[in-house]
Amino acid sequence: MNPLITGRNLSKSYGSKLALNNVNFEIEQGAPVALVGPNGAGKTTLFSLLCGYIAPSNGELEILGHKPGSAALFNKVSALPQDAQLDPRFNIDKQLAFYAKLQGMSTKQSQTEALRVLDLVGLREIAKNRAGDLSHGMRKRVTIAQALIGSPQIVMLDEATAGLDPIHAREVRELVSTLSSEATFILSSHDLTELERLCSQVLHLDKGVLSEHQTKVNQTDKHFYTLMLNEMYENVEQQLQLLNGVSSVYMSQHKEYVIEYTQSEQALDIALLQFCHQHNWQYRQLVNGHTLENQIFKQEKV
């Protein structure tokens, strides 16, 4: 299958500052892709390149076989750029309908489409409000709605849940999860747990350099579990080490342990949970593999 997006030797510099350094990646159709990294890592720069807002200093970028921003991608690629706002002087439905008309819909279709996407983000009732009269969270959801107009193949959301309350952030996550069978989402966020839930491919940017992680499968011969406990108990590492098949245990962070094991016929996860029960350890979560957070921080420490 041809990749949806291909970046080859991609670099972007602002004066002497190198925001992206020789980045290579491919994104294929399917589950959402996460773009993570600390502030100033180059995430928004990469988003801006993908949307055609800026041109690369070097390298090539192709989306569905076209250059970003080209007319062939209209109606196929949509985005929520970070901090972009609708015109505060116009009604929400009027602006969304205008965008729908630019995407080739008739006046009537565009009005229906504006209400449909507002419905998706739970804001149909504010269709007649002006953008300037909405709260920050509502404005954010409306801008997510504009990214869902039509039937895009690729939807890029830069910090979509930043500034949203937990309930609406969860709704956005559910929306992405629901629509991910129809479009490939590319999400950037600082909430690694959120991305871990939604995405299978993670592009990690740091200081303009890109690396990739997989969240859903163990990629190497080594196998891991991550055990999160509710409290700090004594000698957890030493005691877990006694379990059959466990080769090493270390505390990755407060109340969280990474267990490396060799695969055998015996199900270690069941044994682990039984072990917790026997020792009266209250566990919070058992993750099959590394958490995304640990993968990224481990790499940064190296």
């Binding site: 949307c51 921003g69 209209f74 985005a79 972009a84």
Partner: peptide, 17 residues
Amino acid sequence: GDRERGTLRFLSLRSTR
């Protein structure tokens, strides 16, 4: 105004510059 607010970013995904 649209450029400073970011509204042009929405437009440029739907029409050429």
